[in-house]
């Protein structure tokens, strides 16, 4: 039984779930949003520092969530640092596809997508897709200047 679950709970996820990176609330964040998953009560804040050229200089988060949502948030903060706003949005779109669509749909060569590949296991667990995408929804809300977002 554990073997079937290893697809979902890969080592990277367990690691990021237990020791999330960029788990902090920086004073100088200039875009912030709160994301909430009403189904399980998971809640997190995403903090972005975006410079005048639209480049994400810093990205971090805080919150309470399951291994999937925490690991996804942690990976996201690592990946988004140094990205432009529109690049971040495009990544979100591609990540969402990764979580919901057929695996063969995209064999990615790009490093970022390859790192996110570890989360593609949620495809087999439809109710967990929202866990994986909560941080990304929240990030995108922060970029849009929207302070609250729920995954309904």
């Amino acid at each position: 039984m554990l073997d079937e679950l290893r697809d979902l709970y890969q080592e990277v996820i367990l690691d990021h779930g237990k020791n999330p990176r960029n788990f902090r609330h920086p004073e100088d964040a200039n875009r912030t949003a709160h994301g909430f998953n009403p189904m399980c009560g998971d809640t997190l804040f995403v903090y972005l520092k975006v410079d005048e050229k639209g480049v994400i200089q810093d990205c971090s988060f805080m919150g309470k969530g399951c291994a999937i949502s925490t690991a996804s948030a942690s990976l996201m903060t690592e990946i988004l640092k140094g990205k432009k706003e529109d690049e971040a949005r495009t990544l979100f779109e591609r990540f969402h596809q990764l979580c919901t669509e057929d695996p063969s749909a995209e064999e990615s060569e790009d490093d970022d997508m390859e790192r996110l590949e570890v989360l593609s296991g949620v495809r087999e667990f439809p109710v967990r897709v929202k866990c994986a995408t909560l941080a990304w929804h929240t990030m995108s809300a922060a970029l849009d200047g929207q302070e609250e977002v729920t995954t309904e």
């Binding site: 079937e4 679950l5 237990k18 399980c40 399951c66 291994a67 967990r128």
Partner: peptide
């Protein structure tokens, strides 16, 4: 400790065990 209810729910589900993970409409 160390495991979120949602993860627990997913794991025991694979063993065929249906339990509820959440706030049970009693926040």
């Amino acid at each position: 400790d160390g495991a979120h209810p949602h993860d627990i729910g997913t794991i025991v589900d694979r063993a065929g065990v249906a339990i509820r993970a959440g706030h049970h409409c009693a926040q």
